[in-house]
Nucleic acid binder design. Sequence first.
DNA 1: AGGCAGGTTCTTA
DNA 2: TAAGAACCTGCC
Length: 283
Amino acid sequence: MEIRFDDDLDLRRIAESGQCFRWKSIGDEGVYRVIAGGKVLFLKQKAGNILDLSCNEKDLKAFWENYLDFGTDYRSIRKLVRKDDPYLSEAARNGEGIRILCQDPFEALISFIISQRKSIPAISSSIEKLCKKAGKKITLSKGEITWLKKHALSSEGEDDLYSFPSPSDIAGLSTDDLNACSLGYRVPYVRSAAEAVLLGDADLDRMRSLSDEELMEELMKLCGVGKKVASCTALFGFHRLDFFPIDVWIERILSEHYRKGFPYDSYRPFNGVMQQYLFYSKR
DNA sequence: AGGCAGGTTCTTA
DNA sequence: TAAGAACCTGCC
C-alpha cells in the first residue's frame, strides 16, 4: 500500500543512524527490509513523500505506524535547534529525516549489550546469528511476495528470515550456541540479561512506568550494562527521547565543539533526537 | 598482519 | 574516586 507522509522521513538515514541493526537495503532502488515485532516489512520511499509499504492498512495501524513513530512530529523537533549553534544546525540539516523508531525494549537491550566494542557490521552479524539460532522463522506472505515482484525483486534470499528471540529463547540456548554467535566475552552478559528478564528480576514492562532516572538505575543493575548501553536501551527501546547516549563519537564532538557542555536544557525533552543528528552527521 | 572497534568490569592505588 | 588493564572476535 502507498501512503503520503509529510513529516521528516528518510529511510536511508534511519537505516544508517545506528539505532537499529535489522534494517537491510535490498537491491539498489532504495528498498529496505525491516524485521521487527516478529514481522517483516519491505518499504520504499518515492518522490512526493510517498511511502510504498508491503503491509496492508490493518498491519500499518496495528504495528508499523507506531514502530515508525508516526505520532511524533520530527519537523517541529528539528526546528528547536538553536540558531546560535551552527554545528548542531548543520548536523540537523544532514540528519533531516531521521526518526527514532519504537523498538522492542528487550531487543534493544540485548542488541546494545552486544554492540559494545564491536563495529556495526560485526554487531549486525552477531544479531543475525542469534536470531537464526533462537528466533522464529518468518515466512513471507502472498502480499509480500507480490510486493517484491512488483519492485522487480526476487524473494529468494528473503525467505530465510527470523524474528528476534524472546528472553526464554535466549535463556534456553547452550553456551556453544551462544558462542557460535560471535558474542565473545559478552556471552554471560547476554545470557544473564535474558534470564533476568525471563525470571522477572528485570521487569521491562514495569520499567515503562519509571522515571528516566529510575529506568537508568534499573537497567544498569544488569551485568554488562553500563551508562552507554543503558541510555541506548532507554532511548531506542523505551522511546525516552531525552536520553543522550555518549559514545566515543559523541565524546569527540563534545570535546571539540561543546567545551562548555552541551545545552541539554534547551532541548528537553528531545535531547536524544539531537544526539542522533550529531551522531549521524559525524559518521 | 595486526590494530582496532558505538563499553564494561575488575584491579589497583 | 579514579585511572588503567583485560576482555572475545571479526573487520578493515
